[in-house]
């Protein structure tokens, strides 16, 4: 399953629907993660906050390929996108393992094939380097075999870079 998470409007959502099995529109109409760990300790892979992200990690967890479309935000995800990522930690279990010599969580859903991040807007070289570092870390932490960063100046180029 291919899932596209994006922070664009409904018109883009319609266009992106043709490129994947499911889209998640990051409109910011949901609460931020409270760091309670209930999605590990109390209701596995389910958030205690009863809004539209309550089961988002079950969707993200089952995706083989995740494409994230985000405005460039100092070399990381926009707050609307990051909120979804923060609320998705239930895709891992509480247990830890070593990956590349560092501590990481064991995946609940096994390995995913690709984490692709398309960031749009103006990017400095430092921001590009930061985003590539964060993508690599996210892939390692959330069990993605491959990562790909694509930097585009405008969201108008979006449909050209997402096959």
């Amino acid at each position: 399953m291919r899932v596209i998470i994006h922070d664009l409007d409904k018109s883009y959502d319609e266009l992106l629907k043709g490129k994947c099995d499911l889209t998640i529109m990051a409109d910011g109409e949901y609460a931020p993660c409270q760091g309670c760990f209930d999605c590990w300790l109390k209701t596995p892979a389910k958030c205690k906050i009863k809004d539209k992200l309550v089961e988002v990690c079950r969707i993200v967890g089952k995706a083989d390929e995740i494409v994230i479309v985000t405005r460039n935000f100092y070399g990381t995800y926009s707050p609307e996108i990051k909120n979804i990522i923060d609320r998705s930690i239930g895709i891992s279990t509480t247990f830890s393992t070593y990956r590349k010599g560092q501590m990481h969580h064991v995946s609940r859903y096994g390995w995913h094939s690709l984490l692709m991040i398309v960031s749009y807007g103006e990017h400095s070289e430092e921001e590009k380097a930061t985003f590539m570092h964060i993508a690599e870390r996210n892939a390692l932490n959330h069990s993605f075999k491959n990562t790909k960063n694509v930097f585009i100046a405008s969201k108008d180029e979006l449909l050209e870079v997402i096959a």
Partner: peptide, 17 residues
Amino acid sequence: LPLYVDGIPSHVLEFME
């Protein structure tokens, strides 16, 4: 701040903007 998924928690990003 706490590290959230290799980065800054979303509510802090909102404040930075």
